[in-house]
C-alpha cells in the first residue's frame, strides 16, 4: 500500500519553529487559539495512529478528523513525524512535571524518583500503545525525524539534563565519578529498552515491566552509589 507523506516546502520554516516547543509560551489570545488548533490536530492524529496505524494514516485523514483544511495542518506540522515528535515532547514535559509536582518525591531516594519519571512517561503513553510500537520501528530508519532531527536531539538533551539534575540532587551519589557523568546518557538508552519491553509486555497490568523497572533501578542506583560497576 503506497504511503502518502505530508510535505510542502513553503511552510517548512514556520512549522519547524512552531513544533519546537509544545506549550504556548508566547502568551496572548492568538497564541492560545493556535495552541487549541495544535491540540485538535494532535488529538485527531493520535486517534488515527492508534486505529489505522502510523504508516497508514495520511495528513488528509488527519485534517478530516480534526475538521480542518489540509493546508492548515502544514501551518503547524511539516510532516506526520513532526506530530509524533510533538507528542513525545508532551510526554517528557508531563513526566518532568509529575516528578517535580509531587512534593513527597523531593525527599525520596533516587531510584524512586527515576521510577516515578519512567512510570509517568508510560502512563502518558499507555492509551497510544499501538502507535508507540509503530513509531519505535519507524524511528529505526536512518531518515527518521523521530530519532535523527534537531527537535529529536533537543528532546533527548532535555530529558538527559533532567536525569542529570535528579542524580546531582541525590546526596547518596558521589559527584564527579565517571559513572555519574555517563549515567544520564545511559539512562536514555535504558529508557528506550524499558519502553520496548513495556510494548511487548502482555502480563496483567504490565506487572513485568514494573518489576523490571524496580529491580534494574535499584541495582543501577546501587552501582552509582558505589561509584563503580
Amino acid at each position: 500500500m503506497p504511503v502518502r507523506r505530508a510535505k510542502t516546502g513553503s511552510t517548512r520554516k514556520t512549522s519547524a519553529r512552531a513544533a519546537k516547543r509544545p506549550a504556548a509560551r508566547r502568551g496572548g489570545k492568538r497564541a492560545e487559539q493556535k495552541e487549541a488548533v495544535r491540540k485538535r490536530i494532535v488529538d485527531a492524529a493520535l486517534a488515527l495512529f492508534q486505529t489505522r496505524g502510523f504508516d497508514q494514516t495520511t495528513t488528509r485523514q488527519i485534517a478530516q478528523k480534526a475538521k480542518l483544511a489540509e493546508g492548515t495542518i502544514f501551518n503547524y506540522f511539516e510532516t506526520k513525524e513532526d506530530i509524533a515528535l510533538y507528542f513525545l515532547q508532551l510526554e517528557v514535559d508531563h513526566a518532568i512535571a509529575t516528578v517535580r509536582g509531587t512534593p513527597r518525591l523531593r525527599r525520596a531516594p533516587l531510584e524512586e524518583k527515576l521510577f516515578a519519571l519512567v512510570e509517568a512517561q508510560l502512563e502518558f503513553l499507555a492509551p497510544h500503545e499501538k502507535f508507540i510500537g509503530a513509531a519505535f520501528v519507524h524511528a529505526l530508519r536512518p531518515t527518521s525525524k523521530i530519532a535523527f532531527s534537531m527537535q529529536a536531539l533537543d528532546l533527548r538533551n532535555r530529558y538527559i539534563a533532567f536525569v542529570h539534575e535528579l542524580i546531582q540532587e541525590s546526596e547518596s551519589v558521589p559527584p564527579g565519578s565517571l559513572l555519574t557523568w555517563a549515567a544520564p546518557s545511559a539512562f536514555w538508552i535504558y529508557y528506550l529498552g524499558v519502553l520496548l519491553y513495556w510494548l511487548n509486555d502482555v502480563s496483567s497490568g504490565k506487572q513485568h515491566t514494573l518489576a523490571l523497572l524496580d529491580r534494574s533501578l535499584k541495582l543501577g542506583v546501587a552501582m552509582l552509589r558505589k561509584g563503580s560497576l
Partner: peptide, 23 residues
C-alpha cells in the same frame, strides 16, 4: 498485511528474547 505492524511485532519479539526475563 500491514507491513509496519508485522515489522513492529518482529522487532518487539526480538527485544523480548533478551529482555523478557521475569527473574
Amino acid at each position: 498485511p500491514r507491513r509496519g505492524e508485522s515489522a513492529a511485532r518482529r522487532a518487539l519479539q526480538m527485544a523480548s528474547m533478551t529482555a523478557g526475563v521475569t527473574g
